[in-house]
Simulated assay, not measured.
Amino acid sequence: MSVVSLLGVNVLNNPARFTDKYTFEITFECLEQLEKDLEWKLTYVGSAQSDNYDQELDTLLVGPIPVGVNKFVFEADPPDLKRIPLDELLGVTVVLLTCAYDGREFVRVGYYVNNEYDSEELVNAPPAQPVIEKIRRNVLAEKPRVTRFAIKWDSEASAPAEFPPEQPEADLVADEEEYGAEELAEEEAELGEGVVDPAAQAPADKDAMEVEGVAEPEAEVAAEEDEMSDDGSVDIEGESEDDLDEEEGDEEVAEGDDMDVDMDKPDAAAGPSKQVVMAQ
């Protein structure tokens, strides 16, 4: 269970000009006293083709954290235009709001951001050189993508298990009070449409199995017994040495088929941090 739960995020200046600051009102709940501060960070994705254009807009240290519900305002500078490819300045991109404790990220909120001109004339006929003061951004705040991670807090007891049990359904269930729970429920409902019950596809009875050519276990055992001689040996005279060598070769190839490759995306470089002191 997470010691800190994100309850809500409001984008205060939305829509806004491209050059305006990002302003978020963040509400979270802390269940126990923490020894360190929380580190909040806002990252702008400058290109969908490469993370080399990602920009860390600002970081903020919040603490000490009192137990209970807390609220604060996080302001971040707009992205540096020189670090954004001109052909990706307009259109849809993403901003990532993250929070970490003692260097361990435990929540990430992603928002789509639409950058477009504020006049229909420029939208229909965009100039070759972008007119920055005419570009307006719109953060799609009603559709956040929230991802949570289990981390170790102050005590060893809070550390996640090294080999946790397999619970594929656990990540699909969100607390109704947590931020983004409604959006996750909507995605779950969309994924559920058109799913076929495997039981409905199984043969209904023994007759159906026989029609589809599925042999019963008793019939397979009887067939094996017929192939064996009285002394318990099996007649393999019908198989040639070439057939046996081919079967052994297939088994050796099958043993080396599986190979897993794991690649991790590096995090963005950390920048200077500001700090907010929470009232006790």
Rank of each mutant, 00 (worst) to 15 (best):
V234I: 13
M228A: 14
E182A: 15
E190F: 05
G192W: 02
G238E: 00
G192N: 12
E225V: 14
E188I: 10
E225D: 11
E177W: 00
E187K: 09
V234A: 00
A200F: 13
V211F: 04
G180H: 03
E182V: 14
E224K: 08
G180K: 01
E190R: 14
E239G: 02
G194R: 00
G192S: 13
D205Q: 00
D205T: 02
P198Y: 12
E216G: 08
V195K: 09
E190K: 11
V214A: 05
A200G: 15
E182M: 13
D175L: 07
D175V: 06
E212G: 04
A189E: 09
P203D: 08
E212D: 09
E193L: 04
A215W: 07
E190H: 12
I236R: 12
E190M: 11
S240M: 01
D207A: 15
D230G: 14
E190W: 02
P198D: 14
D197N: 15
E239Q: 04
D235M: 00
A185S: 09
G238D: 10
A215S: 06
S229W: 02
D205E: 08
D207V: 09
G238N: 10
V234M: 12
G194D: 02
L191M: 07
E239Y: 14
S240V: 00
E193V: 11
G232E: 00
S229R: 01
A200W: 10
V211D: 06
P198K: 09
E227L: 08
E239P: 00
K206L: 12
E178H: 05
D230C: 01
M209T: 12
A222R: 08
E224H: 06
P217N: 01
P198Q: 15
A204M: 12
D231L: 02
G238V: 11
E187S: 06
K206M: 06
G192H: 13
E227G: 13
L191N: 07
D235C: 06
E225Q: 14
E225P: 00
D175R: 15
E210T: 03
E188N: 14
A199Q: 15
D230I: 09
D231G: 08
G213W: 02
D197R: 10
Q201H: 03
D231S: 13
E183S: 09
V196H: 05
P198E: 05
D205V: 12
V195L: 15
E188L: 15
D205Y: 04
E182R: 13
E218S: 12
A219V: 02
I236E: 09
E177N: 11
A202Q: 15
E177V: 13
V196R: 05
E178L: 02
E220I: 14
G194K: 03
S229A: 06
D230E: 11
E218R: 09
S233P: 12
E239C: 01
V196S: 09
L191A: 11
S233H: 01
E178Q: 10
D231V: 01
Q201D: 05
E186L: 08
G232C: 06
E193C: 02
E190S: 03
E178C: 06
A223M: 03
V234D: 00
E239S: 00
E182Q: 15
D197I: 11
A219T: 10
D226Y: 07
E227N: 03
E216T: 07
D235I: 03
